[in-house]
Design a protein around this nucleic acid. Structure first.
Lengths: 352, 352
DNA sequence: ACGAATAATGCAACCGGTTGCACTAATTAG
DNA sequence: CTAATTAGTGCAACCGGTTGCATTATTCGT
């Protein structure tokens, strides 16, 4: 049986309280006593039971992490890297990550992640994929559990950490325009997520800046998965195959886009340039390497934990918003439009 | 304040014990009483405090998950998918996943994951990347915490779940041989991991079967990361660029291998065929698509949780070993050797 | 030298559940 | 009709810590 505080107390002829205080570094216990306690703890390998501590202090030192729901789920490398960094930082701050992986996207009013929130097992929560009008906010607020979103939330009173979506997207799309592209398709994320909206906004701004009218025929929405990107691209090609570039709202969808283009007989970047968003490591390994807007993924993970910890400790009353810089990274998947748009080659494969 | 058991008891003029039993479905409480209790719980939104339950029952309904340590960390999509499935199944079994992300690989005798194990916060543990002589086994056994490895462990008394590494690798490499390849390089994982060993064994078996002698000059070990695969391939090419195929022990390293080959001016699969292992989704999206041995990743995740749950409940005394079938999946990255091995093209770039 | 301030420790009540055992009332057997 | 069951509930002791307050032993000021 693992030793308890009481065991220690008995051995040392002290009371539980004194032992507890000695271990906690309470200045009221004599230095001599403390060292005896610490020495014994060391010797018999005493470690406080976090469950008991949790019950007494009402703090668990656990952070809940709501991972994205299906279909995106955890299949996006972006989240792995994010999760790794978050876990690392959490540990450094003395917390562990408890994850809530669950099906159901709350469309039915039932939010699986809220189960975790209600459990009284966590001190705070990290949420991903904020929706435009996210019902979870109200629920969380009611039980005053500190929480932080990964991605911008509309409600000004909630804390969040996000990459510079709009600016990053605008910069990248502007680069396409500078190269001479005029007909740039866009594969967005689900309409109800703020990340989709903000990146799409960057796309629109860049077009507007250049005086190019927005053409909704070459805009389609995916679900941030490869399949989703693939299907969205297919659908765009069905309407109008005369495009010279595509901006996908995340890298994973861009991979799907590349596949769809190839199946249509188009060569990247000769016929069509492709641009992603996120900067996951694999963008450098596909052929051609995918131009993308690199988010500081690990830093997003660390920062979000730090912000949450701040909220939990400081009882910081005001919400914290942190925007991290992103960096446009050109690569082989982007090139100037060669022929007068893809007309020729698209016609060559028109029979498909 | 959230309602407690005592609150419920006071309202209903019952004792805590009766309320507790009613909620737990103890047959000793009268049906009428039970429904009153349940109705009230429903009405005021009572939910038992899992921390208190944990203290009383010594069960937390939490499974610890030791994610791979740096450098591999969580950057491998394989783990994301695995994690998603494990989390899902855990939830279905009434458990949550607590993850231990930590640096340090135990080389210094300090195993970060064991911190979690010692914490008394978890009922069981899932471990990844078993080492050939894994010190963690002894530690875990001492505190008799149920645990299961993802990947074969040598000790016959520990439970594990794994894909059919040796057979899968052998089948895939045999396919290369059937196509006419004779000089097949191998990029293995870290030497101290069983997964590396078992896959490498499959490679050796296939060679032996075909009467091809093992040439250690074209074998190098990586660390299961892209960079690692890239460097390993570089180093092989420095020794001997006259190979016609490469087997990488996982897909992520295979991506690094592909990059190294390209930088050496070699075309895949014309000059060199490349073969991976794991079957992560991205293999289908790179160009050319990567031939690989598909592991049932999600199923590995579910199965490992199920096995662990079994161990935790049934107190199943005997260890459980489960091997899941893998499936060789040919793809564009593999083709018959065209020219008499890559001699020509390698010479063309000999100056590098 | 004596009362007051200070230092060190102990007592006991929590935190919110679970559970063995005792207890009362109602039912059944003989 | 009484004794033995059985059904339904309550008491109180846990689980292993934390913490406000009381208590005792020291040291200090004057």
């Amino acid at each position: 049986m693992r030793p308890t505080l009481q065991d220690m107390a008995s051995i040392l002829n002290l009371s539980k309280s004194t032992v507890s205080r000695a271990l906690a570094g309470d200045p009221r216990v004599a230095e001599a006593t403390r060292s005896r306690v610490v020495a014994l703890a060391e010797r018999i390998g005493y470690r406080p039971n976090p469950i008991a501590q949790g019950l007494a202090t009402r703090r668990t030192n656990i952070i809940g992490l709501a991972v994205p729901c299906a279909p995106r789920s955890l299949s996006d490398p972006f989240y792995l890297e994010f999760l790794g960094a978050a876990g690392d930082t959490a540990m450094r701050c003395g917390y562990s990550l408890l994850l809530s992986a669950a099906d159901g996207d709350g469309a039915d009013g039932y939010h699986p992640h809220m189960e975790l929130a209600h459990s009284a097992r966590i001190d705070g929560m990290i949420l991903t994929e904020p929706k435009i009008a996210d019902e979870r906010i109200e629920i969380l607020r009611k039980m005053d559990l500190p929480f932080v979103f990964l991605g911008m939330a509309e409600d000004p009173d909630v804390s969040w950490v996000s990459g510079e979506n709009t600016g990053g997207a605008a910069e990248a799309v502007a680069h396409l325009i500078d190269l001479g592209h005029k007909k740039i398709a866009c594969v967005t994320g689900p309409a109800d997520q703020t990340a989709s909206e903000t990146r799409f906004k960057g796309y629109r701004e860049a077009l507007a800046e250049a005086g190019i009218p927005l053409d909704l025929n070459i805009v389609a929405s995916g679900d941030f998965t490869q399949i989703g990107g693939y299907q969205a691209m297919k659908s765009i090609l069905r309407h109008d195959s005369n495009i010279s570039a595509v901006f996908a709202s995340n890298d994973v969808m861009a991979f799907g886009v590349m596949r769809a283009l190839r199946e249509a007989g188009l060569v990247i970047p000769d016929d069509v340039s492709v641009l992603g968003f996120d900067g996951i490591p694999l963008t450098q390994y596909v052929d051609p390497p995918l131009a993308t807007v690199r988010q500081p993924i690990s830093q997003l993970g660390s920062t979000i934990v730090e912000v949450l910890v701040e909220q939990m400790n400081g009882k910081s009353l005001c919400p914290i918003h942190r925007v991290l810089n992103v960096e446009y990274r050109p690569a082989g998947s982007v090139a100037p439009p060669c022929r007068e748009s893809g007309e020729a080659s698209s016609r060559a494969h028109g029979g498909i």
